[in-house]
């Protein structure tokens, strides 16, 4: 439909302006972080137009000498492993919940939701004591298990929704043809729910990647993740703004390609889940 009436142009103009305003809202703080990360210490809070040349790369070099890079590595390891484990355990569970004849399905979905919603302040101390007794403090596996309490309900819940879109007939047909359940799951259902699986994995990774709270409790110097290391730039009598800006960029950049690739899948799978 090509519409060139003046009325339409006005409306389009309003729409475009609104989008630009929203873009500014999204982008101004991002730009500000970029500027901070390149600012020389003396000029950090001067408006950029007053001293446009007071820029430096030192902030980037400085952060490579801190423990931040190893913390970033820790974030990758723990977020990656917890996502992998959550997929290994959660995808079959989601499949089973979608296809099995069960009476407690509603309760199961309620519990899955509730688990990622409990307020942490209340259970820090019990959680910590559990970890101490299990010898899991400051271990990668300890943090991975903790993240699974976030990622596993998420993966299970969203895979449940994804597998619900796969027609029962497909599975039944495979089983009629003498495939066992595992084969039906791996060869028929899983490929059909692939976009959902990719989306679930990425969302799970993001949840673990962004976590501050569990890492704060469970890690010590050996396994501290990047969000915790960011806090270490706030010290007794100074806030290292430039390092925080660099760290934010370092934390965001790895996510970008992931988001770009996954965007399509997320949209595809969610559109199934929330179509109504």
């Amino acid at each position: 439909m090509i519409d060139n009436s003046p009325e339409f142009r006005v409306k389009r103009g309003i729409g475009l302006t609104l989008m630009l305003v929203l873009l500014a809202f999204a982008a101004v703080p991002t730009l500000w972080v970029l500027i901070l990360s390149f600012r020389a210490p003396m000029a950090i809070f001067q408006p950029i137009w007053e001293s446009p040349l007071a820029l430096t790369l030192d902030n980037f070099f400085k952060i490579t000498r801190s423990n931040f890079p190893s913390a970033l590595m820790n974030s990758f390891i723990t977020a990656g492993l917890s996502t992998a484990f959550a997929m290994i355990v959660g995808v079959p569970a989601g499949f089973a919940l979608a296809k099995a004849r069960l009476s407690g399905k509603f309760v199961a979905s309620w519990v899955l939701l509730l688990l990622r919603m409990a307020p942490p302040v209340g259970f820090v101390i019990p959680l910590f004591l559990l970890y101490v007794n299990a010898g899991l403090i400051d271990t990668y596996m300890g943090l991975v298990f903790a993240y699974m309490t976030l990622t596993l309900p998420l993966v299970t819940w969203s895979m449940w929704n994804s597998f619900a879109q796969v027609p029962d007939e497909l599975i039944e047909a495979a089983i009629m043809d003498d495939a066992n359940l595992m084969q039906a799951f791996l060869l028929i259902a899983l490929p059909a729910a692939r976009p959902g699986a990719v989306a679930a994995a990425i969302l799970a990774f993001l949840v673990a990647w962004n976590d501050f709270f569990y890492a704060l409790i469970i890690t010590r110097s050996g396994t501290a993740t990047a969000p915790v290391a960011v806090m270490n730039f706030i010290s007794y009598d100074s806030v290292d703004w430039a390092s925080i800006a660099v760290a934010s960029i370092a934390l965001t950049l790895p996510i970008l390609p992931l988001m770009a690739i996954a965007n399509r899948y997320i949209v595809q799978s969610l559109s199934g889940a929330v179509k109504g």
Partner: peptide, 23 residues
């Protein structure tokens, strides 16, 4: 189907239910 759910129930049970009970 039920077997496929067991690992998930175990994983969640230990690391989520215990701290909640403590709370």
């Amino acid at each position: 189907y039920r077997l496929m759910m067991v690992p998930a129930i175990l994983a969640v049970g230990i690391f989520a239910i215990v701290p909640l009970a403590g709370m």
